[in-house]
Amino acid sequence: MTAGAGEDKPEVCARLRRTGASLDLGTAHPQPTAIRAAVQEVLTDPSYRAAAQALAAQMVAAGGAAEAARRIN
């Protein structure tokens, strides 16, 4: 799950939602009921886990955090 409205959070939330690995709550201040429902959906829908695992594999294949840091420097 992702949430946020400041800085680049809306863009990050949208990108993660498009991968299928995250459910965007669409606000910086989600209500407890929205959080509860989102947690329930993410935990019961196996597509979120599969998408997160695929995203993790892509990150590893691209060199992970070490490669990201190297490119930034």
Rank of each mutant, 00 (worst) to 15 (best):
G4V: 11
A68H: 07
V12F: 12
T27C: 04
A37H: 15
A5K: 07
I72N: 03
Q53G: 00
E11K: 07
A3Q: 08
L55K: 13
V12G: 10
G64E: 05
A66L: 05
R17T: 10
I72P: 01
A5L: 01
A57M: 05
A34Y: 11
A21H: 08
L16V: 05
G26Y: 09
L16G: 08
E41Y: 05
A14V: 00
S47T: 14
V39E: 07
S47C: 06
P32R: 07
A14Y: 04
A38I: 03
L23I: 02
R17D: 10
L43H: 06
E7G: 12
A28T: 04
A50S: 09
L25M: 11
L23H: 12
L23V: 03
A57E: 11
A54H: 13
L16C: 12
A56P: 00
T27Y: 10
D8N: 08
A69K: 10
K9Y: 11
N73C: 10
P46R: 07
T2M: 08
A62E: 01
D45M: 04
R70F: 04
C13Q: 11
D8F: 12
A52L: 03
P10A: 10
A38F: 04
L43T: 15
G63A: 01
P30R: 02
G20T: 13
A37V: 07
A14P: 04
T19E: 00
G6M: 10
V12L: 12
A62C: 00
A65K: 07
L43R: 05
L55N: 07
A21C: 11
S22H: 06
